[in-house]
Design a binder for these strands. Structure first.
Lengths: 158, 158
DNA sequence: CGGAGAAAGTACCAGATTCAACTAATGTAC
DNA sequence: GTACATTAGTTGAATCTGGTACTTTCTCCG
Protein backbone atom coordinates (compact mmCIF):
# COMPACT_ATOMS: atom_id res chain seq x y z
CA UNK A 1 0.00 0.00 0.00
CA UNK A 2 1.38 3.36 -0.97
CA UNK A 3 2.16 5.75 1.81
CA UNK A 4 1.16 9.16 0.49
CA UNK A 5 2.92 12.40 1.22
CA UNK A 6 1.33 14.49 3.91
CA UNK A 7 0.62 18.13 3.07
CA UNK A 8 3.86 19.40 4.54
CA UNK A 9 5.91 16.85 2.69
CA UNK A 10 4.01 17.61 -0.45
CA UNK A 11 4.70 21.28 -0.10
CA UNK A 12 8.39 20.79 0.51
CA UNK A 13 8.66 18.52 -2.45
CA UNK A 14 6.96 21.01 -4.68
CA UNK A 15 9.21 23.75 -3.42
CA UNK A 16 12.17 21.67 -4.42
CA UNK A 17 10.84 21.33 -7.93
CA UNK A 18 9.94 24.99 -8.09
CA UNK A 19 13.27 26.16 -6.74
CA UNK A 20 15.18 24.14 -9.25
CA UNK A 21 13.01 25.06 -12.19
CA UNK A 22 12.93 28.77 -11.48
CA UNK A 23 16.61 28.87 -10.68
CA UNK A 24 17.59 27.03 -13.78
CA UNK A 25 15.42 29.22 -15.96
CA UNK A 26 16.74 32.36 -14.39
CA UNK A 27 20.42 31.43 -14.52
CA UNK A 28 20.01 30.20 -18.04
CA UNK A 29 18.30 33.39 -19.04
CA UNK A 30 21.03 35.57 -17.60
CA UNK A 31 23.76 33.57 -19.26
CA UNK A 32 22.00 33.43 -22.58
CA UNK A 33 21.10 37.08 -22.64
CA UNK A 34 24.52 38.39 -21.86
CA UNK A 35 26.83 35.75 -23.26
CA UNK A 36 24.81 33.67 -25.66
CA UNK A 37 25.57 30.49 -23.72
CA UNK A 38 23.21 27.96 -22.19
CA UNK A 39 23.82 26.54 -18.74
CA UNK A 40 24.73 23.26 -20.38
CA UNK A 41 27.35 24.96 -22.51
CA UNK A 42 28.69 26.73 -19.48
CA UNK A 43 28.97 23.53 -17.48
CA UNK A 44 30.99 21.96 -20.23
CA UNK A 45 33.35 24.88 -20.42
CA UNK A 46 33.80 24.80 -16.66
CA UNK A 47 34.61 21.12 -16.55
CA UNK A 48 37.11 21.40 -19.33
CA UNK A 49 38.73 24.44 -17.78
CA UNK A 50 39.27 22.54 -14.56
CA UNK A 51 40.92 19.58 -16.24
CA UNK A 52 44.56 18.81 -16.98
CA UNK A 53 45.39 20.30 -20.33
CA UNK A 54 41.90 21.79 -20.52
CA UNK A 55 40.74 18.55 -22.11
CA UNK A 56 38.55 15.60 -21.20
CA UNK A 57 37.54 12.37 -22.81
CA UNK A 58 33.99 12.48 -24.07
CA UNK A 59 32.77 9.89 -21.60
CA UNK A 60 34.36 11.63 -18.66
CA UNK A 61 32.81 14.87 -19.73
CA UNK A 62 29.44 13.19 -20.12
CA UNK A 63 29.69 11.72 -16.67
CA UNK A 64 30.83 14.99 -15.12
CA UNK A 65 27.95 16.92 -16.64
CA UNK A 66 25.42 14.13 -16.11
CA UNK A 67 24.56 14.18 -19.78
CA UNK A 68 23.87 11.21 -22.01
CA UNK A 69 26.59 10.36 -24.49
CA UNK A 70 24.31 11.20 -27.32
CA UNK A 71 23.45 14.58 -25.95
CA UNK A 72 27.02 15.42 -25.18
CA UNK A 73 28.09 14.46 -28.65
CA UNK A 74 25.57 16.84 -30.18
CA UNK A 75 26.44 19.56 -27.77
CA UNK A 76 30.17 19.29 -28.28
CA UNK A 77 29.49 19.39 -31.99
CA UNK A 78 27.71 22.70 -31.58
CA UNK A 79 30.39 24.16 -29.35
CA UNK A 80 32.98 23.03 -31.83
CA UNK A 81 31.07 24.79 -34.58
CA UNK A 82 31.16 28.03 -32.64
CA UNK A 83 34.86 27.56 -31.98
CA UNK A 84 34.76 27.31 -28.20
CA UNK A 85 36.32 23.87 -28.24
CA UNK A 86 37.81 21.32 -30.58
CA UNK A 87 37.94 17.58 -30.73
CA UNK A 88 41.25 15.78 -30.69
CA UNK A 89 41.75 12.14 -31.18
CA UNK A 90 43.18 10.07 -28.41
CA UNK A 91 46.49 8.37 -29.01
CA UNK A 92 46.26 5.70 -26.30
CA UNK A 93 42.78 4.57 -27.19
CA UNK A 94 41.98 5.16 -30.78
CA UNK A 95 38.26 4.75 -30.25
CA UNK A 96 38.27 7.73 -27.97
CA UNK A 97 38.43 11.46 -28.43
CA UNK A 98 39.05 14.49 -26.34
CA UNK A 99 37.09 17.66 -26.11
CA UNK A 100 39.61 20.46 -25.74
CA UNK A 101 38.91 24.02 -24.70
CA UNK A 102 40.16 26.57 -27.20
CA UNK A 103 41.46 30.00 -26.36
CA UNK A 104 38.10 31.40 -27.44
CA UNK A 105 36.36 28.91 -25.17
CA UNK A 106 38.52 29.90 -22.25
CA UNK A 107 37.79 33.53 -22.95
CA UNK A 108 34.07 32.86 -23.16
CA UNK A 109 34.26 31.22 -19.77
CA UNK A 110 36.25 34.07 -18.27
CA UNK A 111 33.67 36.48 -19.60
CA UNK A 112 30.62 34.60 -18.48
CA UNK A 113 31.69 33.21 -15.13
CA UNK A 114 31.05 36.45 -13.22
CA UNK A 115 27.50 36.53 -14.53
CA UNK A 116 26.84 32.99 -13.51
CA UNK A 117 28.49 33.14 -10.12
CA UNK A 118 26.79 36.39 -9.30
CA UNK A 119 23.49 34.79 -10.28
CA UNK A 120 24.06 31.84 -8.01
CA UNK A 121 25.02 34.14 -5.20
CA UNK A 122 22.08 36.46 -5.67
CA UNK A 123 19.44 33.81 -6.05
CA UNK A 124 20.76 31.21 -3.64
CA UNK A 125 23.52 32.15 -1.25
CA UNK A 126 22.24 35.60 -0.44
CA UNK A 127 18.77 34.28 0.19
CA UNK A 128 19.84 31.71 2.75
CA UNK A 129 21.82 31.80 5.95
CA UNK A 130 25.09 29.90 6.00
CA UNK A 131 23.53 27.02 7.90
CA UNK A 132 20.48 26.90 5.67
CA UNK A 133 22.67 26.65 2.63
CA UNK A 134 24.79 24.01 4.24
CA UNK A 135 21.67 22.01 5.08
CA UNK A 136 20.54 22.28 1.49
CA UNK A 137 23.88 21.06 0.28
CA UNK A 138 23.99 18.19 2.74
CA UNK A 139 20.52 16.99 1.86
CA UNK A 140 21.27 17.15 -1.84
CA UNK A 141 24.54 15.31 -1.40
CA UNK A 142 22.70 12.49 0.30
CA UNK A 143 20.00 12.31 -2.33
CA UNK A 144 22.51 12.31 -5.16
CA UNK A 145 24.65 9.71 -3.43
CA UNK A 146 21.70 7.43 -2.82
CA UNK A 147 20.57 7.47 -6.41
CA UNK A 148 24.07 7.03 -7.79
CA UNK A 149 24.68 4.12 -5.51
CA UNK A 150 21.42 2.48 -6.36
CA UNK A 151 21.96 2.70 -10.07
CA UNK A 152 25.46 1.26 -9.59
CA UNK A 153 23.88 -1.66 -7.85
CA UNK A 154 21.34 -2.27 -10.54
CA UNK A 155 24.14 -2.09 -13.09
CA UNK A 156 26.08 -4.60 -11.03
CA UNK A 157 23.11 -6.91 -10.92
CA UNK A 158 22.97 -7.22 -14.69
CA UNK B 1 34.43 42.39 -8.44
CA UNK B 2 32.93 38.95 -8.42
CA UNK B 3 32.98 37.07 -5.19
CA UNK B 4 33.65 33.46 -6.16
CA UNK B 5 32.25 30.42 -4.45
CA UNK B 6 34.58 28.75 -2.01
CA UNK B 7 35.12 25.00 -2.40
CA UNK B 8 32.43 24.06 0.10
CA UNK B 9 29.91 26.33 -1.50
CA UNK B 10 30.87 25.04 -4.88
CA UNK B 11 30.41 21.48 -3.77
CA UNK B 12 27.02 22.15 -2.24
CA UNK B 13 25.88 23.93 -5.34
CA UNK B 14 26.96 21.06 -7.53
CA UNK B 15 25.20 18.61 -5.26
CA UNK B 16 22.04 20.57 -5.73
CA UNK B 17 22.34 20.30 -9.48
CA UNK B 18 23.24 16.64 -9.28
CA UNK B 19 20.44 15.78 -6.89
CA UNK B 20 17.87 17.39 -9.08
CA UNK B 21 19.16 15.98 -12.32
CA UNK B 22 19.53 12.43 -11.05
CA UNK B 23 16.22 12.54 -9.26
CA UNK B 24 14.38 13.87 -12.23
CA UNK B 25 15.91 11.30 -14.54
CA UNK B 26 15.16 8.49 -12.17
CA UNK B 27 11.56 9.47 -11.44
CA UNK B 28 10.95 10.09 -15.08
CA UNK B 29 12.39 6.74 -15.99
CA UNK B 30 10.20 4.91 -13.50
CA UNK B 31 7.08 6.67 -14.64
CA UNK B 32 7.85 6.22 -18.29
CA UNK B 33 8.78 2.58 -17.99
CA UNK B 34 5.73 1.50 -16.11
CA UNK B 35 3.06 3.93 -17.21
CA UNK B 36 4.29 5.55 -20.38
CA UNK B 37 4.03 9.02 -18.86
CA UNK B 38 6.66 11.70 -18.48
CA UNK B 39 7.01 13.68 -15.28
CA UNK B 40 5.63 16.66 -17.13
CA UNK B 41 2.54 14.70 -18.13
CA UNK B 42 2.13 13.50 -14.60
CA UNK B 43 2.36 17.00 -13.16
CA UNK B 44 -0.39 18.15 -15.46
CA UNK B 45 -2.66 15.31 -14.49
CA UNK B 46 -2.04 16.03 -10.83
CA UNK B 47 -2.86 19.69 -11.12
CA UNK B 48 -6.03 19.03 -13.01
CA UNK B 49 -7.10 16.35 -10.60
CA UNK B 50 -6.77 18.78 -7.71
CA UNK B 51 -8.86 21.46 -9.34
CA UNK B 52 -12.56 22.23 -9.17
CA UNK B 53 -14.28 20.21 -11.84
CA UNK B 54 -10.97 18.61 -12.75
CA UNK B 55 -10.33 21.51 -15.09
CA UNK B 56 -8.06 24.50 -15.36
CA UNK B 57 -7.59 27.39 -17.71
CA UNK B 58 -4.53 26.94 -19.86
CA UNK B 59 -2.71 29.89 -18.33
CA UNK B 60 -3.39 28.72 -14.81
CA UNK B 61 -2.14 25.30 -15.68
CA UNK B 62 0.96 26.77 -17.26
CA UNK B 63 1.63 28.82 -14.18
CA UNK B 64 1.04 25.89 -11.85
CA UNK B 65 3.41 23.65 -13.74
CA UNK B 66 5.94 26.41 -14.41
CA UNK B 67 5.74 25.74 -18.12
CA UNK B 68 5.67 28.24 -20.94
CA UNK B 69 2.35 28.72 -22.69
CA UNK B 70 3.70 27.33 -25.88
CA UNK B 71 5.07 24.24 -24.26
CA UNK B 72 1.89 23.63 -22.38
CA UNK B 73 -0.14 24.02 -25.50
CA UNK B 74 1.88 21.35 -27.29
CA UNK B 75 1.83 19.10 -24.29
CA UNK B 76 -1.88 19.38 -23.75
CA UNK B 77 -2.28 18.63 -27.43
CA UNK B 78 -0.37 15.39 -26.98
CA UNK B 79 -2.30 14.41 -23.88
CA UNK B 80 -5.49 15.20 -25.70
CA UNK B 81 -4.42 12.95 -28.54
CA UNK B 82 -3.90 10.07 -26.12
CA UNK B 83 -7.27 10.76 -24.55
CA UNK B 84 -6.12 11.66 -21.05
CA UNK B 85 -7.71 15.06 -21.24
CA UNK B 86 -9.82 17.25 -23.46
CA UNK B 87 -10.06 20.92 -24.19
CA UNK B 88 -13.26 22.81 -23.56
CA UNK B 89 -13.93 26.34 -24.52
CA UNK B 90 -14.55 28.93 -21.89
CA UNK B 91 -17.91 30.65 -21.87
CA UNK B 92 -16.94 33.74 -19.85
CA UNK B 93 -13.85 34.57 -21.87
CA UNK B 94 -14.13 33.29 -25.36
CA UNK B 95 -10.40 33.57 -26.00
CA UNK B 96 -9.78 31.09 -23.24
CA UNK B 97 -9.99 27.36 -22.96
CA UNK B 98 -9.98 24.75 -20.26
CA UNK B 99 -7.98 21.59 -20.06
CA UNK B 100 -10.24 18.97 -18.54
CA UNK B 101 -9.21 15.61 -17.13
CA UNK B 102 -11.05 12.70 -18.73
CA UNK B 103 -12.01 9.51 -17.00
CA UNK B 104 -9.04 7.84 -18.71
CA UNK B 105 -6.79 10.62 -17.47
CA UNK B 106 -8.03 10.18 -13.95
CA UNK B 107 -7.45 6.48 -14.20
CA UNK B 108 -3.94 7.00 -15.56
CA UNK B 109 -3.21 9.18 -12.57
CA UNK B 110 -4.65 6.68 -10.13
CA UNK B 111 -2.48 4.00 -11.70
CA UNK B 112 0.72 5.96 -11.82
CA UNK B 113 0.58 7.91 -8.58
CA UNK B 114 1.80 5.02 -6.42
CA UNK B 115 4.85 4.61 -8.65
CA UNK B 116 5.69 8.27 -8.44
CA UNK B 117 5.04 8.72 -4.75
CA UNK B 118 6.98 5.60 -3.91
CA UNK B 119 9.82 6.92 -6.01
CA UNK B 120 9.86 10.23 -4.19
CA UNK B 121 9.76 8.43 -0.88
CA UNK B 122 12.51 6.01 -1.77
CA UNK B 123 14.87 8.49 -3.29
CA UNK B 124 14.22 11.47 -1.06
CA UNK B 125 12.25 11.01 2.10
CA UNK B 126 13.78 7.70 3.09
CA UNK B 127 17.27 9.02 2.51
CA UNK B 128 16.88 12.00 4.81
CA UNK B 129 15.86 12.47 8.41
CA UNK B 130 12.69 14.43 9.07
CA UNK B 131 14.64 17.54 9.97
CA UNK B 132 16.95 17.23 6.98
CA UNK B 133 14.00 17.02 4.67
CA UNK B 134 12.34 19.95 6.34
CA UNK B 135 15.53 21.97 5.96
CA UNK B 136 15.63 21.10 2.29
CA UNK B 137 12.05 22.20 1.86
CA UNK B 138 12.56 25.42 3.75
CA UNK B 139 15.63 26.39 1.78
CA UNK B 140 13.89 25.66 -1.50
CA UNK B 141 10.84 27.61 -0.48
CA UNK B 142 13.01 30.64 0.16
CA UNK B 143 14.87 30.31 -3.10
CA UNK B 144 11.69 29.91 -5.09
CA UNK B 145 10.03 32.80 -3.29
CA UNK B 146 12.99 35.09 -3.89
CA UNK B 147 13.09 34.44 -7.61
CA UNK B 148 9.33 34.74 -8.03
CA UNK B 149 9.30 37.99 -6.18
CA UNK B 150 12.17 39.39 -8.15
CA UNK B 151 10.62 38.59 -11.48
CA UNK B 152 7.36 40.15 -10.32
CA UNK B 153 9.27 43.30 -9.57
CA UNK B 154 10.95 43.40 -12.92
CA UNK B 155 7.57 42.85 -14.54
CA UNK B 156 6.22 45.73 -12.50
CA UNK B 157 9.06 47.95 -13.60
CA UNK B 158 8.14 47.65 -17.27
C1' DC C 1 46.81 -15.92 -32.32
C1' DG C 2 41.74 -15.19 -33.01
C1' DG C 3 37.10 -14.69 -31.97
C1' DA C 4 33.40 -13.12 -28.70
C1' DG C 5 32.06 -9.50 -26.23
C1' DA C 6 32.51 -4.84 -24.22
C1' DA C 7 33.52 0.09 -24.67
C1' DA C 8 33.91 4.83 -27.04
C1' DG C 9 31.80 7.64 -30.02
C1' DT C 10 28.82 9.09 -33.66
C1' DA C 11 24.66 9.12 -36.70
C1' DC C 12 20.08 8.90 -37.35
C1' DC C 13 15.40 9.41 -36.06
C1' DA C 14 11.53 10.48 -33.39
C1' DG C 15 9.82 13.26 -29.80
C1' DA C 16 10.12 17.50 -26.95
C1' DT C 17 11.05 22.42 -26.28
C1' DT C 18 11.66 27.17 -27.55
C1' DC C 19 10.93 31.31 -30.13
C1' DA C 20 8.50 34.31 -32.81
C1' DA C 21 4.65 35.17 -35.41
C1' DC C 22 -0.14 34.78 -35.59
C1' DT C 23 -5.51 34.86 -34.61
C1' DA C 24 -9.10 36.12 -31.91
C1' DA C 25 -11.27 38.21 -28.08
C1' DT C 26 -11.09 41.64 -24.40
C1' DG C 27 -10.05 46.01 -22.20
C1' DT C 28 -9.32 50.95 -22.35
C1' DA C 29 -9.17 55.75 -23.69
C1' DC C 30 -10.85 59.34 -25.97
C1' DG D 1 -18.10 53.40 -30.66
C1' DT D 2 -13.82 53.14 -32.88
C1' DA D 3 -8.93 52.66 -32.54
C1' DC D 4 -4.96 50.83 -29.83
C1' DA D 5 -2.96 48.09 -26.71
C1' DT D 6 -3.37 43.58 -23.93
C1' DT D 7 -4.32 39.07 -23.08
C1' DA D 8 -5.36 33.96 -24.20
C1' DG D 9 -3.98 30.63 -26.71
C1' DT D 10 -2.19 28.23 -30.92
C1' DT D 11 0.92 27.29 -34.69
C1' DG D 12 5.15 26.18 -37.31
C1' DA D 13 10.04 26.20 -37.83
C1' DA D 14 14.32 25.65 -35.74
C1' DT D 15 16.70 23.68 -32.14
C1' DC D 16 17.60 20.36 -28.61
C1' DT D 17 17.18 15.81 -26.49
C1' DG D 18 17.09 10.76 -25.93
C1' DG D 19 17.04 6.08 -27.72
C1' DT D 20 18.90 2.87 -30.68
C1' DA D 21 21.71 1.04 -34.02
C1' DC D 22 26.17 1.17 -36.03
C1' DT D 23 31.45 1.46 -36.61
C1' DT D 24 35.72 1.08 -34.80
C1' DT D 25 38.83 -0.31 -31.44
C1' DC D 26 40.06 -2.77 -27.21
C1' DT D 27 40.11 -6.58 -23.96
C1' DC D 28 39.90 -10.96 -22.43
C1' DC D 29 40.24 -15.70 -22.56
C1' DG D 30 40.53 -19.98 -24.80
Amino acid sequence: MTKWLNPDEQQSWRSFIAAWTLLNNQLNFELQCRHDLTIADYEILVRLSESEGKRLRMSDLAEATLASRSRLSHQVGRLEATGLLTREECAEDRRGSFAVLTEAGWQALVDSAPTHVTGVRTHVLDVLSKSEFKALGDACRKIAAAISQESDQSLGRR
